[in-house]
Design a protein around this nucleic acid. Structure first.
Lengths: 218, 218
DNA sequence: TAGATTGTTAATCGATTAACAATC
DNA sequence: TAGATTGTTAATCGATTAACAATC
C-alpha cells in the first residue's frame, strides 16, 4: 500500500517495545508516553515516536499511547496475529532447551517439529514432540505448514541444514550455530549467536573502570 | 596509547572474523585477502580492511593477511589471550545447556560457578560444577576472580540478578532474559535475546516472495 | 615490471536526535 | 486556556562504501 522501506534497526526494536508494553498491560497501566518508554528501554523518545510513526498514527497528542492498542498494532506489524509454525533441527542441549522453552506462546510462534541427523535419536520425545530423522524434513515442513526453521546443530553442519530448510520452502531461519550462513535471497536469516556476544563482551572488560562510557579523552 | 574510539559495530564483527580465520587455519590456509573474507562473511572488503586498520597494520599490500598472525592479533584485541572466568545464574533448561556447552574453551572463557535462587537446587551438579545458592554469589565471584556473569533466569528476576552481579564487582553481563537491564556505567551488558530475534524474523515472513531484498519499487 | 591488495581518505548513505508546529 | 505529548521535518551524527595512492 504505502511505498514503505522500514529499516532493519526499526524492526528489531519492535519486539522490545512489545514486551515492555505487555508488562505494562499486565500491571494495569493503560497509557504510556514515548518519554516513559524511552526511560525504561534506554532509548531516545524521539526515536520511539519515529519508529512507531512509520506504521501509522498510534498515539494521541498531549496524551500518549494507549497500551493495549499499541500492543495490538505492533503484533499486527510483526505478523504475530497469525500462528507461525516452527521446525527445529539439532536436539543437543541447546535444542532441547529451546523445545522446552514454551516460546511465550502468546506470540503465536510454536515449535511443531523436531529433527536430528543422528538416526539413533529419531523416535525419542522432547516436550511431547517426537524427534524425526532428517529424511522427513521436507515432507513435514510442507505438511505442517512450517515457515520458520531453527538451527541448533554444530557449526560444521549448519549450512547443510540451512540448505535443506530452504529447499523445503522455509522463509526464515534462526541460526544458533556460530557460522555465517548463505541462503537464497527471499529467505531471511537471523543469528542468535551468543558465543559472538560473549567474545565481543570480553573486549570491554578492562581492569580499571573507565567510568563514562565514551572515550575518556583525558 | 592511541586516542582510539572504536565503534561497537566494529567490535561486534571481530568475533566473526576470528571464527572464520580459525576455520581457515585449521584447513591449512595461510593467507587471506579482504576480498576472500568479504565473500565468505557477506561483508564489504573495504569494511573489513577498515575494521582491522583501527588496530594496526596487520596485512601486506599485494599479498593479504597472514591467517595465524591475524588470529593472534584479534585474540589480543578481544582480550582472549588471558583467561576470563564466568558465572552463570539460573539453572533452567537454557542455563544447563550453556553449562554443558563447553564454551569453545580455546577462547579462554570458562564458566566456573553456577547459582540458582531455588535452594532445593543447591548442591546438585551440572557438568562437574556444584550449583550454589545465591547467598554465595558475592563471595564466589571475588574468590574465583569472576569478571563476567551470564543471566538465564526468568525475565522478572533478571534485574535483581544483574544488581547482585554488579554489587559483586562483575564487569560484563550476558543477558538471556527478555528484558532491558539497567546497570551502572562501567558494567557492560550484552543481550542474547533469541525471542526478540524470532519475533523480528516474523516481520519478514510474507507469503509471496519479494525476490530482491530491497523495496521492490516496481 | 605487472598484478594484486592493503591502508586510508573522501563520498555516500543511513540512522539518531533535536526541535517544533499541531493538537489533544 | 495551559500543559503535555505526538508526528514530522531538519540537523547531526555515525557507519559503510568507493576510490586510489602506496607498496609488496
Amino acid at each position: 500500500m504505502k511505498p514503505i522501506k522500514i529499516s532493519e534497526a526499526v524492526v528489531r526494536r519492535l519486539p522490545i517495545y512489545l514486551r515492555f508494553l505487555n508488562e505494562l498491560s499486565l500491571s494495569g497501566i493503560q497509557t504510556v508516553s514515548s518519554q516513559d518508554l524511552g526511560e525504561k528501554l534506554d532509548l531516545n523518545p524521539a526515536q520511539i515516536r519515529k519508529d512507531l510513526a512509520y506504521f501509522g498514527e498510534f498515539g494521541r497528542k498531549g496524551v500518549g499511547y494507549n497500551v493495549d492498542y499499541l500492543i495490538e498494532k505492533i503484533r499486527q506489524i510483526l505478523k504475530l496475529d497469525k500462528t507461525m509454525n516452527v521446525a527445529l533441527v539439532g536436539t543437543g542441549n541447546l535444542g532441547r532447551a529451546l523445545c522446552n522453552y514454551n516460546m511465550y506462546i502468546k506470540d503465536n510462534m510454536k515449535i511443531v517439529a523436531v529433527f536430528d541427523a543422528d538416526k539413533g535419536k529419531a523416535g525419542t520425545t522432547i516436550n511431547h514432540l517426537v524427534v524425526q530423522p532428517m529424511s522427513e524434513l521436507s515432507t513435514s515442513v510442507r505438511k505442517l505448514d512450517i515457515s520458520v526453521g531453527i538451527i541448533t546443530v554444530p557449526a560444521g553442519e549448519a549450512q547443510n541444514v540451512a540448505d535443506q530448510f530452504v529447499a523445503a520452502g522455509i522463509r526464515g531461519i534462526l541460526n544458533f550455530a556460530p557460522v555465517v550462513l548463505k541462503a537464497t535471497a527471499g529467505v531471511r536469516i537471523h543469528n542468535a549467536d551468543f558465543t559472538a556476544e560473549l567474545l565481543s563482551l570480553a573486549y570491554y572488560m578492562d581492569e580499571n573502570d573507565e567510568a563514562e562510557e565514551g572515550d575518556g579523552e583525558r
